[in-house]
Computed example of a mutant assay.
Amino acid sequence: MAKVVNYISDAFTELKSNVTWTTWAEVQRYTIIVAIFTVVLSLATWGVDTLFADALAGFFNLLNS
Results as ranks from 00 to 15, higher is better:
13 T>P: 00
1 M>D: 11
33 I>Q: 14
58 G>D: 09
45 T>Y: 04
48 V>I: 15
7 Y>D: 14
38 T>Q: 03
52 F>W: 11
45 T>W: 04
23 T>V: 02
65 S>P: 00
35 A>F: 06
52 F>N: 04
61 N>M: 07
27 V>A: 12
16 K>N: 14
43 L>F: 15
55 A>F: 08
7 Y>W: 08
22 T>V: 13
35 A>T: 10
42 S>Q: 04
65 S>V: 03
25 A>I: 05
40 V>G: 00
16 K>D: 14
44 A>Q: 08
50 T>R: 09
34 V>A: 15
1 M>R: 07
64 N>K: 15
19 V>T: 13
56 L>V: 07
13 T>Q: 05
65 S>A: 02
6 N>W: 02
61 N>I: 01
15 L>I: 07
56 L>D: 08
62 L>M: 11
54 D>C: 01
63 L>G: 01
23 T>K: 10
41 L>M: 13
17 S>N: 15
31 T>H: 03
25 A>C: 01
65 S>Q: 09
2 A>W: 02
22 T>R: 09
22 T>D: 12
13 T>H: 07
44 A>E: 03
65 S>D: 10
25 A>P: 00
36 I>T: 11
38 T>C: 11
50 T>V: 02
56 L>M: 07
12 F>K: 14
12 F>D: 12
15 L>P: 00
47 G>I: 03
38 T>K: 06
58 G>P: 00
40 V>Q: 04
14 E>I: 05
4 V>K: 10
36 I>V: 15
22 T>F: 02
40 V>A: 14
15 L>V: 02
21 W>Q: 09
14 E>Q: 06
30 Y>S: 11
13 T>N: 10
35 A>C: 05
4 V>H: 06
52 F>I: 15
55 A>D: 03
64 N>T: 10
20 T>P: 00
23 T>A: 07
58 G>W: 06
43 L>M: 15
50 T>N: 07
38 T>R: 03
20 T>G: 01
22 T>N: 07
55 A>S: 09
52 F>D: 00
27 V>C: 03
43 L>W: 11
61 N>A: 15
4 V>N: 06
33 I>A: 10
30 Y>W: 07
20 T>C: 01
15 L>A: 13
25 A>M: 02
23 T>C: 05
19 V>P: 05
63 L>P: 02
59 F>Q: 06
33 I>W: 02
34 V>Q: 12
25 A>H: 07
5 V>G: 00
52 F>G: 01
39 V>M: 07
52 F>L: 15
9 S>G: 12
64 N>E: 08
60 F>M: 09
10 D>V: 01
61 N>H: 07
3 K>Y: 04
64 N>W: 05
48 V>F: 09
42 S>P: 01
30 Y>P: 00
31 T>K: 05
17 S>F: 14
62 L>A: 05
17 S>K: 13
23 T>I: 01
26 E>Y: 01
61 N>R: 13
40 V>E: 04
4 V>T: 09
12 F>Y: 12
14 E>D: 12
1 M>G: 14
17 S>C: 04
29 R>C: 00
65 S>W: 02
46 W>F: 13
63 L>K: 10
63 L>Y: 04
43 L>P: 00
